[in-house]
């Protein structure tokens, strides 16, 4: 495992921890899109079907369990926790799941490396992860008041994707036959979705003003 991959995983882990910190200690999920969180839970549930059949490493297994456990517990908190759910911006978080899920499923059935159940599910999870942030980005744009933790959460998620691209470039030059068009293209699309957010994030950081996305 190279440094980019490891840093990417750690950034991903940090994003989840920031979100759990916000929800667990502040008891608030204001500005967080439940739709995006539900899509991530679906992403991990469909991607990690190999959890109990293919052993890669202890690190790999532990991380999979962490991402599965954290994504489902975040969804649980926002939907059912009696204090946390009160802060959920339900009226603003209106993105429809099937609008993203159905095209991804269709695309995975058409474009995949191997037409087997597990491989189609794996591919579906890649496509869905690429666009799962959209409800969150829409909500950020609607929320006039983005708090620090929410801003950092989205920034860390974007940084994780950018580091994965560096990881793929590194692996392409150091490992024989390392070519994965589906992973790369969906990963690139996913990272590009953050470009706009990154721009305003760095602007607010540079000028030391509160993060706000233009409508």
């Amino acid at each position: 495992m190279n440094i980019f991959r490891f840093a990417g995983d750690m950034t991903h882990l940090a994003s989840v921890l920031v979100l759990l910190l916000k929800i667990h200690t502040i008891k608030s999920c204001a500005g967080i899109s439940l739709k995006t969180q539900e899509l991530y839970a679906l992403v991990f549930a469909t991607r990690y079907l190999d959890l109990f059949t293919d052993y890669i490493s202890l690190y790999n297994t532990l991380m999979k369990l962490i991402f599965l456990g954290s994504s489902f517990s975040i969804v649980w908190y926002i939907r059912y926790h009696k204090i946390v759910r009160r802060s959920y911006d339900k009226d603003q978080d209106t993105f429809r799941h099937y609008f993203l899920v159905l095209p991804c499923l269709l695309l995975a059935l058409l474009i995949n490396e191997k037409f087997t159940f597990r491989e189609v599910m794996w591919t579906f999870s890649l496509y869905l992860e690429a666009v799962a942030i959209l409800p969150q980005l829409v909500l950020l744009q609607r929320t006039r008041n983005i708090d620090n933790l929410t801003g950092q959460y989205v920034f860390l998620l974007g940084a994780y994707r950018a580091l994965y691209i560096l990881n793929w470039i590194y692996r392409y030059f150091t490992e024989p036959h390392y070519v994965h068009w589906i992973t790369w293209i969906s990963g690139l699309v996913q990272t590009l979705l953050y470009a706009d957010f990154f721009y305003y994030y760095f602007q607010s950081w540079k000028n030391n003003v509160k993060l706000e996305l233009p409508a």
Binding site: D9, D54, H177
Partner: peptide, 10 residues
């Protein structure tokens, strides 16, 4: 194989 090396990522 290609599939296995792809699935070692998270």
């Amino acid at each position: 194989s290609a599939i296995v090396s792809q699935h070692d990522e998270l």
